[in-house]
Design a protein around this nucleic acid. Structure first.
Lengths: 204, 204
DNA sequence: AAAAACATTGGACCGATGGACAGGGTGTAA
DNA sequence: TTACACCCTGTCCATCGGTCCAATGTTTTT
């Protein structure tokens, strides 16, 4: 598992990917829809009409997706990221850059070309008007893992999602979560969220 | 060179950083301004007024900056990134996550908590002319019963409890709740709670 | 060295949850 | 009257959540 796949309709550009990732395979968009697996590293060419839809579908399966375009733009970058892609780069980027992008995106990071990033952030900034959120708190009684699980759950993540994020089984998430409930004296995740949200207001 | 520095006014939370980066040192914001070096990995607590200015100054010196906050928000995240930070995280994040963030940001990657990323991208997308996306709803779109159910659920009540309170069957609660999910564009009660908790001016 | 705490996973159980599919009853607007 | 929105209920079913029964290996404390 954790295959490296290159999704493209046309046949070109494989040698570049292969030199960076020797065990990569090329597949078509339609093939990708059925063989997407959790943890796969997918390099998806934005060369067909429904690449955002495909990106979204694959992202929901837990694949790490980098969209490649021959004509990068900030709107296309946003479309890619919003569809769940973790990276967006020029299709003809040098091999060493591809490796760096793989490293970044493979570790929950976002990769966007620096020149696009500025514009994207500027656009985002103009259309946001401020609000608070998340919990600090009495998490000091918890262990490292328990705290990690508690914070993720407090963000609304499901057990499955938390398991993916921490790279452990769902069973282990349940174990930690049970300990969290016991230590904080709450019954379920719902009460946990409310507890953390409440304590949030007093501290700031 | 390439020192790992922890910038904070207060003295706390160093052990966490140290366990992730044994050779890290803690310095004050004023100290940071003079000893910033190109390539330094700086973890900057957003616990003093001018952290954006400091971030900007250090970024211009070529430092890799991750802003840490006890109360993360999308606006603060944007402020951090616009100031030149490459990462923005919860200050109480688990050690392994810190390592991941260091890896990502040290390789030209961007690191933002996934839940903030979604909102940031949504905002950016709208302001760039991309049509449609996330519902900015409040509870006014709901019917009387739907709103009653939504508010009860937002207090942490189970479907059974809500049913008792409103004197209807649990099945009906589910029906209303399903309508609430659909209208507000959330997938489950957990997301509903978080949504209402963030903008609870409408509640009462 | 022994004891305790921690992280991880397995299996099993069962209630809670949410969607799909299908209705009835009421009122009001076209 | 017809249409429509709202409110209420039912069954079925797949999944999620939380707890109970474990077990193994590591780290820390005593």
């Amino acid at each position: 598992m954790m295959a490296t796949l290159f999704v493209s309709q046309r046949r070109g550009e494989i040698p570049r990917l292969l030199s960076a990732f020797p065990d990569a395979r090329r597949i078509t968009p339609s093939q990708a829809r059925v063989m997407a697996a959790h943890g796969d590293r997918i390099w998806l060419m934005a060369d067909h009409s429904d690449w955002p839809g495909l990106t979204r579908a694959l992202a929901e399966h837990g694949a790490v997706i980098v969209v490649m375009s021959l004509t990068p733009s900030e709107t296309e970058a946003l479309r890619a990221l919003q569809a769940g892609a973790r990276g967006y780069i020029h299709a003809l980027s040098p091999v060493e850059l591809l490796g760096q992008v793989a490293l970044v995106t493979g570790n929950q990071g976002i990769w966007v070309p620096a020149e696009l990033l500025g514009r994207v952030l500027g656009a985002a900034f103009n259309s946001l008007g401020g609000r608070e959120s998340l919990p600090p708190e009495n998490l000091s009684a918890l262990t490292e893992r328990e705290r990690a699980v508690a914070l993720a759950v407090a963000e609304g993540r499901s057990n499955k999602e938390v398991a993916r994020r921490l790279d452990i089984t769902e069973r282990t998430v349940k174990a930690h979560l049970g300990a969290v409930f016991r230590k904080l004296g709450v019954r379920d995740r719902m009460q946990l969220v409310l507890r953390l949200a409440k304590q949030d207001e007093h501290i700031v």
